[in-house]
Amino acid sequence: MKDEIIVRRPQNLTELDQILLENGNSWTFVAGGTDLLVQKQVWQRATHVIDLTSVTELHQQVEVLPDKVRIGAAVPYTKIIKHPFIKENFPILCEACRQIGSIQIQNRGTIGGNIANASPAGDTLPVLSALDAEVLLGPRQNGTFTHFKPSEIMAGPGQTRLKQNQYIAFVELPLPAKEGQFWAFRKIGQRQAMAISKLSLAVLGWMDDLLTIKEIRIATGSVAPVIQRHAKTEALLNGQTLTEALIEKAAEALKNEISPISDIRSNATYRRETTANVLKDVLYELLMEKKK
């Protein structure tokens, strides 16, 4: 028969960190389980498991701070979608969460899991990247978490740079300025619900009344083996006035900046052209709306 499996369900962060610091076991973390339990091999072979949903701070906490919000990594998507402050200030994140799987998945799945699973198709990842999120990793060293950018954590499809026994504790989102803000999250999949992205695009930016782009952040998912921000395309747009010619140039730039893959869900040519076209679509729509 199989080896025994040890499960720990710490009630709070202190307990959690204690478990991790006290002995030399290699722990598997589970939160919503919506990715982990699909990977039957990983799940069946785990010998030491920590349930993060029992850790109150990680599972329950959405803390509104003066200039940012701190979300427990094991807070289910549904709670994020319904949270009034997040709804008000981070609609792009709500939109990404709403497009993940089904209601059943949203009721269990978590942002921490989305990051740890490191799928290029993880729907919150480009959004977190565009929001300039910080990811806080435990266990705490001298009382402080280790900080990372979401894009720094992902090493490749299904691979993270998390060290053994390091867990994702919180995601911190700096509060974006509201004035002149525009945003879009586009997810392209084979069907309209329950889809795995062929490509996704997150755009967050600020523009003045004269259509000058003060700042724009562009991130893509599913296009390449990892989530990416596109600094060159962003630089091309920053400080410029939004025009049709600029949009065409930006789309061309994005096309050159991405390195799409071919897999079961789509091919590289489609991904390259369509990602650029979706950016075009977002910007043209913005232009149409502003010109109204």
Binding site: R9, G33, I105, R108
Partner: peptide, 16 residues
């Protein structure tokens, strides 16, 4: 239903 919300029971470890 898990605490009143619908979930896929195939993805929930029973101990949760």
């Amino acid at each position: 239903l898990f605490d009143g919300q619908n979930v896929n029971s195939c993805l929930v470890p029973a101990f949760q």
